[in-house]
């Protein structure tokens, strides 16, 4: 293992992380909801009431618009470098949706919210998806 010091961005990572945590905190404080993106998306389908659906849509709209607003105001372009293409890209997308639905959460729900509540279930989930993601990257890099 070597550390990629050239790409290490501790300050912006920590600052961005704090904002993500603040958003999770505010959603609990105002709406009493866990800020898990896979759960918020999943709740759009099925037997949700229209009131329940509308706060989910409003939140997601904010998530879509926030980075656009940030990019316009800061004039700093948001970098996007793809790592997968073709069939792998779409298989990965399907697995992300499938896995978070079966595992009841993703990086935001289990990671930011579950860990902050000291939930043993979320701790196990985070360990499981981190280990599996690290192993996947190691395998992909060998191919």
């Amino acid at each position: 293992m070597t550390i990629a010091w050239a790409s290490f961005t501790p300050l912006s990572a920590f600052l961005g992380g704090c904002l993500i945590g603040l958003a999770a905190l505010l959603l609990m404080a105002f709406q009493g909801r866990v800020m898990g993106v896979s759960g918020i998306l999943g709740g759009l389908f099925g037997a949700a009431s229209s009131g329940d659906r509308s706060w989910r849509l409003a939140f997601l709209l904010g998530v879509v618009g926030g980075p656009l607003l940030w990019q316009a105001l800061s004039k700093v372009p948001i970098i996007w470098q793809a790592v997968a293409s073709g069939p792998q890209f779409y298989i990965a997308a399907f697995l992300v949706g499938l896995g978070t639905a079966i595992g009841s959460g993703c990086t935001s729900g289990h990671g930011i919210c579950g860990l902050a509540r000291f939930s043993p279930r979320s701790f196990v989930a985070v360990m499981a998806f981190m280990t599996s993601a690290v192993a996947t990257v190691a395998i992909v890099n060998q191919i």
């Binding site: 993106v37 990965a92 595992g103 009841s104 998806f129």
Partner: peptide, 25 residues
């Protein structure tokens, strides 16, 4: 389900570098 789902999600995340929040964003 918690374990299997999380492992499946990790595979997709590792291949693409994308999890649900950043996808929406």
């Amino acid at each position: 389900p918690l374990l299997a789902g999380s492992v499946i999600f990790g595979i997709g995340w590792g291949i693409s570098g994308l999890c649900p929040g950043p996808v929406v964003a």
